[in-house]
């Protein structure tokens, strides 16, 4: 399924912004991902064609940048920062408790952990990246949103309730 007219127009507008069209590739891939949720081979090709670049350029970027996904991801994506400043003040604990509340089994080694709910609507990650919120740790990102100061059990309950609301919304949208 090809991109919507809105996204295609937004991509055309990106191209006009820069002295060289290749600069528009990264923002355009992000626009396409915003609509589709992830970047399939077809979407990558469509974006490259729109800008007038070889498909390989789009693939190169999509496989390099952490925020671009070349595989399907869950509609609700949670990323806990486990880097040192956060880990010093309870990030590991907050991730473990969140996983328990969501009944998610976490896999992976030390700083890098991942798992998902049984219905695949929520994806939970522990990462070693810092998100620039170390003074409000523990923290996680939910999609593009920052959830900070996740200090108490109440904070985590509230987070999980929000995640479930988002998951339900995603589910009803899919139907």
């Amino acid at each position: 399924m090809s991109l919507s007219v809105t996204t295609r127009d937004a991509i055309t507008a990106e191209v006009a912004k820069y002295p060289y069209k290749k600069t528009a590739l990264l923002p355009s891939l992000k626009l396409a991902q915003k609509e589709k949720g992830w970047l399939s081979t077809e979407t990558l090709a469509e974006v490259a064609d729109l800008i007038g670049l070889p498909h390989s350029h789009a693939i190169e970027l999509a496989t390099f940048y952490a925020m671009l996904f070349t595989e399907k991801v869950a509609p609700v994506r949670v990323e806990y920062c486990l880097q040192l400043p956060c880990a010093l003040v309870g990030a590991e604990d907050a991730l473990a408790k969140t996983a328990k509340l969501l009944d998610v089994q976490l896999h992976g080694e030390r700083g890098t952990r991942h798992g998902h709910t049984k219905d695949h609507l929520i994806e939970l990650h522990g990462t070693v990246e810092c998100y620039g919120a170390c003074h409000r740790a523990p923290m996680c990102r939910v999609g593009d949103d920052y959830k900070e100061n996740l200090k108490t059990d109440d904070d985590l309950q509230r987070l999980v309730a929000d995640l479930k609301t988002r998951a339900a919304a995603a589910k009803s949208q899919a139907h």
């Binding site: 600069t23 590739l25 990264l26 923002p27 390099f64 952490a66 925020m67």
Partner: peptide
């Protein structure tokens, strides 16, 4: 002034990698 958002890679902070990223390449 053009405001440009990256896509997640610490190395983009290194100035020549940042330039590469702005040019539409891997950082």
């Amino acid at each position: 002034i053009v405001v440009f958002l990256g896509a997640g890679a610490y190395i983009c902070g290194e100035e020549t990698a940042l330039i590469e990223s702005l040019e539409g390449n891997r950082a």
